[in-house]
Simulated scan of single mutants.
Amino acid sequence: MRIPNPDLAVDDSNKQRWNRPAHRRHGFRNAHHLFRRTLMVRSRNVLPLVPSPIDLPAALPELRALLAHPAFSAFCCLRGDALIFESAAEDFSPTAPHSIQSVTKLHIHLIFGRLLAQGLVSLDAPVSEYLPEIGSGYADAPLGALLDMAVRNDFSEDYSDPLSDCYTEEIALGWRLPPEGAPEPSLAQFAAGITGFRPGPPPRLAEYKSANTDVLTLIAAAVSPVPLARMVEEIADAAGYEGAFHISLSPEHLPAFSGGGCLSARDLARFGLLFAGISDDVAYPNTGFLRYCLERAAPSLEPPRDWLRYSGHLMTNGRLLGHAGYGGQFLLVDTETGTSCALLSVLENDAGYDVNYMSQVAVCAKHICEILA
């Protein structure tokens, strides 16, 4: 006799065990072991870090508050290859892997920067040009709108609603099982089932939908001459991780760029350095797209984070850039000084999300970048 995998099967709350509040701390710190299937990559060469300590908590009471918060897992601040400050909860480490959730979306910025430079995609083209079988939720949406979180359709991402579409999406990301006896939908099948595209001018506020990232993943897989797994390897090599990068895979073995990545705080800060400096170094091949995303107008995030806008699959104010992640993850990079701040945490409320906490994290990282500037 066999039973559904207890880590991946859902209960009456429509959550799998590793993402229920009582198990979430363990789940986020062991997600690379708990996902249905994963890709693991080690960097060919490691970026060494030079200890250059600065007592940031002494200068920033808001950072002291975050380090003492019950959700805190780990924090790392780099300035180039200088290790400025790092800290971890008593039961964790800045070098241990941790779910980074939607911070993973920054890979899509890097990948589409390359595809645009190669002339393989156009920001103005409708999704159906690349995915003829896509459903009505995305067929007529321009690719650029997906990159800017500016698509209006029926997909819902409300973490406080256990029946929100974003939880059904998790089956196609390899995070949970479907109802017993039901097949696992592929990422393509899931995306094709989304309906209700509503055309119109770009919204003033970003309409955050992780399904946008899923569709962009499918487009990248369709047009790229290089397999997505190889692109993940190339990004890992450019970042120079000392540990491993893990990412969950869909049933058709596509990387779950919408939120399946796992990195240590130290390696997440290394990843952030790929976006710093805006140089033409070979490790960062999409300088033009990054500069375009920083300088242009784009939908703002909702208050209190409306000092950031969502442009080209990253959050930015024109100089600082980064991304937030479900459960309390955040990466913020100062593109002018090469400062990269990575925070990992685990919110243990029912929703696993708290907009006020995320705003607190973002403002704290902003202040760190300002001090180090």
Score class of each variant (00 low, 15 high):
L39I: 07
R44K: 07
V50W: 02
L34S: 04
V50Y: 00
A31R: 04
H32F: 11
P48D: 15
L49Y: 01
L34V: 09
L34K: 04
A58E: 08
N45E: 14
P51D: 10
H26E: 14
D55M: 08
L49M: 07
N45H: 09
S43I: 12
L56E: 00
S52K: 08
H26D: 14
D55E: 13
S43H: 06
R42Q: 13
M40C: 12
S43Y: 02
H26R: 12
F35L: 10
F35G: 01
H33L: 15
P51G: 03
R29T: 04
R44F: 02
R37S: 15
L49W: 02
A31Q: 05
H32W: 02
F28Q: 01
D55P: 08
P57K: 02
I54G: 00
L47F: 10
V50C: 00
T38F: 01
N30P: 11
P57N: 01
L56P: 05
S43T: 11
G27A: 11
R37E: 15
I54M: 12
R29G: 06
T38A: 11
R44Y: 04
A58L: 12
V41K: 08
L39P: 04
L56H: 04
P57Q: 06
A58G: 12
I54T: 13
L49F: 00
R29P: 06
L47H: 07
M40Q: 13
L47E: 14
P53T: 11
A31T: 07
P53A: 14
R44I: 07
L56C: 02
F35R: 03
V50N: 00
I54D: 10
L56K: 04
L49Q: 01
P57R: 07
P48M: 12
S43W: 06
A59S: 10
